[in-house]
């Protein structure tokens, strides 16, 4: 089934808590991402962007509106459907969250264990190739503790991309990195996504990496600000 848009959100709303303590964090969100597009989501903390990301990533149950991710409607979707959808999304977190007892190669290959019918040799060779693509071809046997912060985050990028995801969701992937490695990771992510044609939706505060975006969306108080800057460096 050809999908025109990997992400399409209409009238999405979300609130935490019950009764008098109920606090609305997202209201009336409309957002879509085009195939291959790199979209950055910015805004002050508490603006609801992380909540939005967890909803899109099928990590939370929807409350209101419609959210179609890779053809799957998330409103009312059962847990099993959400788990299945998560396998088709590449996640990159603020922390690398690699398994400390596995090598870099095993960490990346782990993401492929979710795909049925792959042989171990295929998983490992694809992991090695992916590590090569993030510039860590020789660090496959290293454990996360033996890698620098930037290298770990690049392993995390490799883990997110190795399974050929239809969409990459990233939450401040450069926040824990210094200027140089943060910029490297961001550009690496952009280049790999472009070469695979994968769209990226990234939450970030980091002004140093805004240049990788096709489009930047600003959020405030649970709404998307109307002044979206549709034009960004290198888009197209």
């Amino acid at each position: 089934m050809p999908l025109d848009r990997p992400l399409e959100i209409r009238g999405l709303g979300y609130a935490y808590g019950e009764g008098a303590l109920r606090k609305t964090v997202l209201r009336d969100i409309d957002l879509s991402v085009e195939p291959g597009e790199i979209v950055l989501l910015t805004g002050p903390s508490g603006s609801g962007k992380t909540t939005l990301l967890t909803l899109i990533g099928a990590l939370r149950a929807m409350q209101e509106g419609s959210c179609r991710v890779l053809g799957q409607e998330l409103m009312g979707a059962p847990e099993a459907a959400r788990v299945a959808l998560r396998r088709r999304i590449g996640f990159i977190f603020q922390q690398h969250n690699l398994l400390g007892f596995l090598t870099a190669q095993q960490n990346v290959a782990m993401a492929l264990e979710l795909q049925p019918g792959l042989r171990e040799a295929e998983r490992l060779s694809r992991a090695t190739a992916m590590l090569g693509a993030v510039g860590l071809g020789d660090r496959g046997p290293s454990r996360p503790s033996e890698l620098s912060g930037g290298q770990r985050q690049r392993v995390a990028v490799a883990r997110a991309l190795v399974g050929d995801p239809g969409l990459v969701l990233a939450d401040e992937p450069t926040a824990a990195l210094d200027r140089q490695s943060g910029g490297e990771v961001a550009r690496l992510l952009r280049d790999l996504a472009r070469s695979q044609g994968v769209p990226i939706l990234m939450v970030t505060h980091d002004p140093r990496i805004l240049d990788i975006a096709d489009r930047i969306i600003a959020m405030e108080d649970g709404r998307i600000l109307p002044t979206t800057r549709a034009e960004a460096a290198g888009g197209g």
Partner: peptide, 19 residues
């Protein structure tokens, strides 16, 4: 560093994902 990536990606995409 990423010079080899496009060919890889192309090769992978052509593989049936769930066979």
């Amino acid at each position: 560093v990423i010079g080899a990536a496009p060919e890889q990606a192309a090769g992978r995409v052509s593989a049936p994902p769930a066979a």
